[in-house]
Structure formats: structure tokens, C-alpha cells
Design a protein around this nucleic acid. Structure first.
Lengths: 335, 335
DNA sequence: CCGCGTTGCTCAATCGTTTGATCAATCGCT
DNA sequence: AGCGATTGATCAAACGATTGAGCAACGCGG
């Protein structure tokens, strides 16, 4: 790891000259001869500017943290790709952080920012995270953007068109002739679950169908809760003939429980899940899903935190392009 | 974000005093009075030492990069947990990086270290990681530990007891009365696939069973390749009655293809997959798996890179404790 | 040939932290 | 009281990069 002085010594000039040449300062006033001498020296020594030194000088690291509840959630794959690609375009790096339980995560984030390791934070909160835990980080001193959830007391969020997504799912089922449709939702404390519930009710109303409260569960987005939901709904004497499952992972668990209960999918019960992932096409039956614009969610979120860092300006954004896309597989059938 | 000078000013002392008190230097020689004054001031200002400044001073960041081919692979969940927990114990942070987003990977890793962003690199090589991608770390200038693979030209690796894992799977199938057993393996270029193949052959030999080359595929670890493998094996006139699938993700794809082909699992075909993950118990039928010590793999890997960074000493290690553990679910049945 | 503008480079301060060297004040001992 | 040892603090030099200010050399017009 060579430094500016090493390069300067080799090229026989001062470190200032080297710095100016290598950072391509427009006002650099350097002769062509020294310029090439410096560039050659830098190449020979394989010079890379020291990250810590620059960060110290600029009090800026060009790093943002992306905090997600579970990195191995296939759903986040596209989100991360969007964030990372946009970050790279903007000259940023992404520090990926798991936040399984938020207590230590909040502390970790506070450290991350307090120690100046990152310039901003993108937070995707999960099922078992109340945004309360994040209060410390969201007090406005730290550039932060909430992904997939909103808070009254914090401006700066990017969310998905959840209502529209659920509407696409409901429409598909209605078109197939279903009238008795249930919703397997996330926890009511989750912001996205609230929006999905609203979307469900509007879509049902628009189709002229009643919402049976017994057909709506709000247990959570993970497979275990999907199982529980199926268990609850399966025990109903006259259950729904179709379900909108607000999360593909929950749908996987639900599918297993349906088999245990001897319920045929899609014969007895049609299922359409929100979010597409590789697990959906490798389930049996392969799941009909609504693909949400997660890649774009990532892109927009990164762009938003960038703006926030540079200009202090930030909005609450809904990603609308592209809209939710129905992917028909084998878990839905006509009634 | 307050600095040492802020704290010093508030406490009415020099920054040296503050630094010594807050870093708990044993030779600090500070009076109890000033000590508490400084500590109070630090707390009041919510002081956190600046990361960049310390990194610059120590030319050490206490960060290691963990490079994995695909973050959303459920298998890596435990691995990451092991790495992160051990890192935390050793005072390190983990910079998670997707290999996919590091194009070209060699250059990105070189930059990571060249710019002094990380002190070392943990690399989990995937199916499509090329030797070229690793070029930067093989010359030994960068502290690096290979996870799950070994190379002649690089010392510093931690691997799983792959042979033993496959043996556990084979034993289970043999005990169930199977004699016609196949192997759905990873690419022959993958180091772990080679070891699993060896383990398969030894285990079969130990059971006094012949290995039918037609029953062995080496297409890859992902679901798509699992499907292809099933397609190939399903076309055989007298196929195997049981399969060891070297990766749980491949097994998921294989399972779907088996349904498409009308092959009953476990009626016509028993399946045991290497690696346990939440997807295994949420498949249908729930997959019998061999749980490998991935958490410990993470712990040992982190410990190894730590040693390498501190002392330049490094070994090639096999994680043996705990051994592979059979988890019986519903994808295997007696013959 | 003097003064002025320009060119091409170097000096030196700065970011925040650590730490050996230094120094003033106090203490213990005779 | 005198003097060395100890205590409790500060000074200042790094770490590596950036950048405004400064300075020597040169060209050129008058």
C-alpha cells in the first residue's frame, strides 16, 4: 500500500503535485512532462488513495448502510441489486447490515453513524421491528430513508404501490370466478401490511364483493406465520376459495400446511402471493405471484438518500414504475 | 458528531487527557476528578471516536469483507451469523459483499484492500467464480481466507467435512434399503463438489455398493440445475431409487421437476439433500437433509482471518465439530 | 531593463486521534 | 530546607490526502 509521498518521491515532485494530477483537478496547472512522470510512478507503485485519509479530510465516506431484517430473504435480492447499482453510479459503496433483532441493530446503526462510518442509512424494517426502535436514528441528525414503511415523525421514505399490488391479485382471482377471497397479511403493526389491507378492501369493494373478517389474518410475513394462518383458515367451516397472501415466504409455509390439512391447491384453494422470488417457481404447485418493483425500489431509495446527503432535501416517495405485474403459475384456478 | 476537542473544551482539559481517559489506557495517570469530568462531558456530547481518524492512525480498520456469490442463499444465513458473531467478539465489523456486484471481482477486492477499507477478505467462492477473479488475493499480499474451497496455490482456507456429510446421507439411504443410489452434484470445477464426490464413492464402497456413473450428475448447485439433473435422471430406463443431492437449493428445483415428470417422492424416489435451510422444511414433501456446521464454519473462518491479519500465520482448516447431522423429514422412505 | 501576469510547482495547514516526550507541581525522605 | 521521584497534566508529531496561499522563473510590453 503505497502513499502519495511514495509516488512523489519516485516521480521527484511534491505530494501536492501528485495529488493534483491524480485527482484530476481542473485548475491543476501541471506540465505535460511531470504529469506523465507522476502517472507512471503511480501506476508502477499501484497507488490507491487511502480511504481513511480521504474520509477524514472530507468528513464523508461515500458509504451508505443498508439495513434489512434478514439478508437471506430472497425478496431482498432485487432490492439490494437496485441499491448497489445506483450506489455505484453515484460513487457510493453499500455496507450491508443484518438486523435480526432491532435492539442491537439500533445500537449498531447509531455506532455506524456516530463513528462516521457511513454518510447515511437505508432502513428496511421487518416484522418484529417497531419503528420505535429506530427513534434514535430517525431524529433527523442522520440522513435516513425508510424503505417500505412510513412514519409520521420522519420525512424520507420510499414505498411500493402496495394497494395496487393487492388489487392486481384480487382482480386475478375475481376474473377466475372467485367471490370468497381471504387475505393472509403481515402484522398490523407493519406499515406495508396496513396498506395491503386497505388495498384489499378497496379492490374487493370495487369488485362488489364483501370482505369477510374471518377470512383475514394478520400474523406475519414469514413461513411459520403462513402455516399458522392456513391452520386458522382451514379450521373454518366455510372457508374462502382463494387467498391473497401478502408475502411469498408466508405462502410457502401456507402451502405446506395446506398439504398437511389435505387441502388441494389450486383445486380447493387458489393462492396468489405478493412478491416474486425464485422460491415461488420452485414450490409445488409453482406459485402465482404479483411481482413488485423491488429493483426500482432499491434504485429510488439510493437516489433518495443521495439527495438527502447532498442537499438536505427529501420526500416521501411511492415507486410506481413499473407497476405490479401478475405472474401466473399453477397455484390459481378457475372456480 | 462531536470530536475530542469538543469534549476537551467542555471538560476544560487537553485533548490528550480526553483521549487517554476514553481509550482506557492503563498507563494513563489521571486523577479521579478529571476522569469523571471527562466521562461526563463525553456522555453529554454523545462522543464517538471518529472511525476514519482511528483507521488512519492505526492503518487498520478492524473491518473484514465477506464475499459471497449470492447473499440471498438461505444456506449462507448461518455462515454469516457465525462470521459476524465472532467478528464482534474480536472487535471487528463485517462488510458484506455480493460477488455479482463486484465486476470485475478481482479489481473490486484489490480496491477494497488497496484503499485500506478492509484489513482482510473472506471469500466464499461460488459456481461461477473464476480463478481470475481470485488472482488478486492469491499473491498473498492481501490477507485472505477461502471458505469452502482449497487451492494448491493459496494457503488459508476453511472447509466443511464434505465427505462425512455425504457419508451420513448415503448411510441413511442404505439403512432404508436402497442400493441404487445416485448423486446430484455441483460443477466438477467446484472444490466442494470434488470432495462430495469422493465422499460419495467411499461411502458407497463402504456399504459394498457399486457407483453407477449414469446416476451421477455434476451440473451445479442451483435450483435450475437441480431441475436439469432430475430431467436427465428421469429419462433413464432404470433410474436410481434414491438420490443424494449435494445442495438443498438444487433439491428444490429437482423436486419440482420430479412432479412434472410424475415421479413420486418418496414413493418412487427418495431424496436427501446436503445443507439444511428453512426452505427445506417448507418444501413438499419436506426435505430430509444433512445439516452441515455452517455456523461454526463462519466462526472458524473469522478466527482464521483474524490470526492471519495479526500474525501472518494461517492454515488450511477443516471444521469437524459438530459433525454433519441427519434431519429426517418426509422425502426419504424405505425401499 | 523594469514591472506585471502567467506558469509550474512547493509549503503548510487541516481533518480527528494517538502517544512519546515534556513540564510543572506536589510528595517523601533525610 | 533541599532534592529526587512521582503525579497529573499538556505539547507536538505523526497517520495520508487535499487545497489555498506562496514563490521562483519566465515571457512580454513599454
Amino acid at each position: 500500500m503505497s502513499t502519495l509521498s511514495d509516488v512523489a518521491a519516485l516521480a521527484g515532485v511534491s505530494i501536492s503535485a501528485v495529488s493534483r494530477v491524480l485527482s484530476n483537478a481542473p485548475s491543476s496547472r501541471v506540465s505535460g512532462a511531470t504529469r506523465t512522470r507522476i502517472e507512471d510512478a503511480a501506476r508502477e507503485l499501484n497507488y490507491h488513495p487511502n480511504f481513511a485519509a480521504r474520509a477524514l479530510k472530507f468528513s464523508r465516506t461515500n458509504v451508505v448502510a443498508l439495513v434489512v431484517p434478514d439478508l437471506t430473504n430472497a425478496i431482498f435480492s432485487e432490492l439490494m441489486r437496485g441499491v448497489e447499482e445506483t450506489a455505484a453510479e453515484l460513487g457510493y459503496m453499500v455496507l450491508l447490515a443484518r438486523a435480526e433483532s432491532m435492539q442491537p441493530a439500533a445500537a449498531t446503526m447509531a455506532r455506524l453513524v456516530g463513528e462516521g462510518r457511513v454518510d447515511g442509512v437505508l432502513v428496511q424494517v421487518g416484522d418484529n421491528t417497531t419503528t420505535e426502535d429506530l427513534a434514535g436514528i430517525l431524529d433527523g441528525r442522520v440522513p435516513a430513508v425508510l424503505i417500505n414503511s412510513r412514519r409520521e415523525d420522519h420525512v424520507g421514505s420510499v414505498i411500493l404501490p402496495d394497494e395496487a399490488g393487492v388489487a392486481v391479485a384480487v382482480d386475478h382471482l375475481v376474473r377466475l370466478g372467485h367471490t370468497s377471497i381471504g387475505l393472509v397479511n403481515g402484522l398490523p403493526t407493519t406499515d406495508s401490511a396496513v396498506r395491503r389491507r386497505v388495498g384489499f378492501e378497496s379492490a374487493m369493494a370495487a369488485a362488489g364483493l364483501p370482505v369477510n373478517p374471518d377470512f383475514v389474518t394478520s400474523l406475519g410475513y414469514d413461513p411459520q406465520q403462513g402455516r399458522r394462518a392456513m391452520h386458522v383458515l382451514g379450521a373454518l367451516p366455510n372457508g374462502p376459495t382463494a387467498l391473497v397472501v401478502a408475502n411469498v415466504n408466508a405462502a410457502l409455509g401456507l402451502l405446506v400446511e395446506s398439504r398437511t390439512l389435505g387441502i388441494q391447491v389450486p383445486g380447493d384453494l387458489s393462492i396468489v402471493a405478493i412478491h416474486d422470488a425464485w422460491t415461488a417457481e420452485n414450490a409445488w404447485p409453482p406459485l402465482t405471484t404479483v411481482r413488485m418493483p423491488l429493483y426500482e425500489l432499491g434504485r429510488v431509495s439510493m437516489a433518495a438518500i443521495f439527495d438527502r446527503i447532498r442537499s438536505e432535501e427529501i420526500d416521501d416517495i411511492v415507486v410506481t414504475e413499473p407497476g405490479p405485474e401478475l405472474i401466473v403459475r399453477l397455484s390459481t384456478a378457475a372456480r
